[in-house]
Amino acid sequence: MTNFILSGMKYFLIVFATITTIRLLLGPSASDRLVAMNVLSSIALALLILWGVTTKNVLYLDVALVYDIFGFLGFLAITRFLKNTKDKL
């Protein structure tokens, strides 16, 4: 039963990630792309934790914590960088 839930989660997250990347590629303006990137970073975090739980390896969870911290900082930097360009991405 638990393996069923874990693999179900894995497939759902993979489907969400592909749909969000499609949104990322399609998005007309930079703001849609940032929205998609925000969702993608949370989905990547969920995938990391899920992989940590399935393989019962504690290392992935530490990686997930560091990923969350630096992902957030990187996200701040990207929005700061995009602020003054003329939205020509």
Partner: peptide
Amino acid sequence: GSLCGTTTVFSYLIALLIL
């Protein structure tokens, strides 16, 4: 997007917490 991102991942984390 943020609805789907935050809520989905949050409920998955709670399910993982239980499992």
